[in-house]
Write a protein that binds this DNA or RNA. Structure first.
Lengths: 217, 217
DNA sequence: CCTACCGATCGGTAGG
DNA sequence: CCTACCGATCGGTAGG
């Protein structure tokens, strides 16, 4: 970094562009996030194309034109929802993998931790962001798809060491890359049928998945 | 063709209602099916709500209003696509189960036959009907959903005897109803990533799935 | 973030 | 199945 000479023209303490409202920022974030939340909920229930920006505005308690103060377009709103969904999932899984105990666990228990976390994020109460992310890919433009694909690749990469290890020990009887696709498919499909009010709990679900996919060591 | 008496008020040679075109009837079916095919393809690629009836008409070589000569509404067109998809899947699976050899196979091989057939119908070339059926449920009205659910229940019921048998023999380590959901999820998700032009064949896929889900007897 | 509005598009229909 | 069309709705914007 170059050392600058003294007595330069005055540098403004605040950047010139969009003001950093120290007081209103939280409020701004609230309104913006209210839109994201409403959009996620509606996109999940009705799909992106069938949801109008008016629906979203109304659900967030705004007038029909107001979402466009926060988001450049309906497209941008969708991408923001999906990015938040993927970001949440990635953060949770990273935290699991980074925990010191994680590497002390046998592979099958590491996989159990990943599966349980995946279910938590996917099926946990009030999380519509991840389901939207899973089912609205085709509504993104190709730049957005590429951008999201990077996050997805990171997420998937966290599964590979465990799966490879299980394959090598003979506890997983399918090539790890294919196993990853099949396993995540089985888990993701639960969005279609899981009902927290009845049937299996996430614990039961996780147990069933692990004991079905993994052979005893 | 009736012999007409002389000098009566002229009687049209064709009946008054919708003409039974003995010659053109096949053509009618063709046009209707061309619409179904075009609709399936577009619904799959862009989703139901993002597809316009004009898109469909154009893809079938018609003018914008013409789809409504064959289908009462866009909704009805979607339902027809999904019903055809589910009907195809059901017919194929029924044929497998009804084959005399089927009951002579060990359970794991019966499951293999079901999985392979499922993949064939789901991922086979030129079949957009089943993928649409899997991903557009929320676009149907509740009467249509109920109607389709009956077909789906029949399809799923064909899997249960095999799964129960495998559970009892200890080759399947999850409750059969839950196993059914997880297995079909793993298979259905392949719609999202399977590419016939690269990667695994349907045989490889089937092998991987069976050896992953099922323990040796 | 609201008011007022626009151009474009969409599902569907009448009449042939 | 086409022509010509309608009413409704939609994403988005200008100006405050």
């Amino acid at each position: 970094m170059p050392d600058q000479a003294i007595s330069l023209p005055e540098i403004p303490k605040r950047p010139r562009g969009r003001p950093r409202k120290t007081v209103d920022e939280r409020d701004d974030g609230n309104r913006r996030h209210a839109l994201l939340q409403a959009a996620a909920k509606l996109f999940r229930r009705k799909g992106f194309a069938a949801t109008t920006t008016r629906d979203i505005a109304a659900a967030a308690g705004m007038q029909s034109g107001s979402p466009f103060y926060h988001f450049k377009s309906k497209d941008a709103l969708l991408y923001a929802v999906m990015e938040e969904g993927m970001g949440t999932a990635l953060n949770f899984l990273r935290a699991v993998v980074a925990a010191p105990e994680y590497n002390t666990l046998p592979s099958s228990e590491r996989l159990r931790a990943l599966v349980r976390t995946h279910f938590d994020v996917l099926l946990g109460p009030g999380n519509d962001f991840v389901p939207v992310m899973l089912y609205e890919n085709r509504s993104l433009n190709s730049r957005q798809q590429k951008s999201l694909a990077k996050l997805i690749a990171q997420y998937e990469s966290l599964w590979m060491p465990v799966l490879v290890s299980l394959e090598q020990s003979g506890q997983l009887r399918a090539p790890a890359p294919l196993a990853r696709l099949l396993i995540l498919g089985a888990l993701n499909w639960a969005v279609q049928w899981f009902d927290p009010k009845k049937g299996a709990s996430l614990d039961t679900l996780t147990d069933a998945a692990i004991s079905m996919f993994i052979k005893e060591s």
